[in-house]
Write a protein that binds this DNA or RNA. Sequence first.
DNA 1: GTATTATGAATGAAGG
DNA 2: CCTTCATTCATAATAC
Lengths: 204, 204
Amino acid sequence: MEAEHEYDSCSNSNGGFLYVKVMTDEQMEVLRQQIAVYTSISDHLVQMHKSITSQHDLSGLRLGNLYCDPLMACSGHKISSRQRWTPTPLQLQILERIFDEGNGTPTKQKIKDIAIELGQHGQISETNVYNWFQNRRARSKRRQLVSTINQTEPEAEIEVESPKETQTLEETDQVQFFQNLSPHRVKDMYIQSPDIGSYSSYFL
Amino acid sequence: MEAEHEYDSCSNSNGGFLYVKVMTDEQMEVLRQQIAVYTSISDHLVQMHKSITSQHDLSGLRLGNLYCDPLMACSGHKISSRQRWTPTPLQLQILERIFDEGNGTPTKQKIKDIAIELGQHGQISETNVYNWFQNRRARSKRRQLVSTINQTEPEAEIEVESPKETQTLEETDQVQFFQNLSPHRVKDMYIQSPDIGSYSSYFL
DNA sequence: GTATTATGAATGAAGG
DNA sequence: CCTTCATTCATAATAC
């Protein structure tokens, strides 16, 4: 098992060597999900507990009053956060322009070219470009569909003063359902001191 | 880098930068402790919940699962039932294990067997299994290429394109370690267990 | 700070 | 096998 580690060696300030384990992105993602399991479990159980205590006022059952939010860093060290690409304004402008040119089918080679071109204006990968076009196409399609429905089914409601609401109904009830179920999104994980006994009041 | 991650940068063929995430042993240990905290938190909450429900038999608080819709009814909204199969954590675990066993070609008969086996843990069809393996294989392959590039020596290797890089794809010990800690994926876990007692199995 | 929205990314499925 | 699409998930950006 140990032999299968991959090590990158790099010298430290002491002149010796410090061995660090290298993880691939895929492994990091798996790890992140593993950790997220506990976040979800905790969130879920917290909610259940809240539901119960709100009905029965069983606050006396809580297990302590010490506080340490496991999500709050004592030292501010983030363990796992998936960094997601965000296009720069310039990149976005170029992407939109290409998209508007109508060549709806982004060829593999075209994606490569675009990625190279956008690479001049910030970090980007071909996958980013691919995803962007995928999402752009899908959402453009969806928006059109929604607006079509809105035309055939004109709302009697007066919403003239809030133009931004026109597209807020894209989210389905199912999404709302899940978000209600797990309001605490899996956010950045932090390293904290393993003071197990002190987290209880997190659930108040 | 201000975070705990250390990034080794290396240039790729696009002239951009790829980053390899590395962790020291110390960081791994802290991470392990962090996860242990979640284990304790969850365990703690389970006990709290048990102590409460044992006194009050709150059957109404059961959590819905994927193929049950009491919770959906509770929401008061029309929630169309999911049309797309989603593997349960247990199913996913089994699938991943089979996939890791390396028998790359899932025979027709094998798929049937797997489907039957997984049927014990939730709704599933042979097509689901087939599709899963197809996607898993393809995406693993694609990710391998990326991470292979990421793992290349940060030294001056200007290699533009390697012809079908080898796929020494083995989960490293780090990942194995965490999988032992929590062998389930996070996906959809909050809609899975219909009973709080089922959560016990999530805790090591 | 919390809540909401926009959007990058992951994934089951379909078509070739 | 591959690509593509629809849907969902998670998070950066923003509103509150």
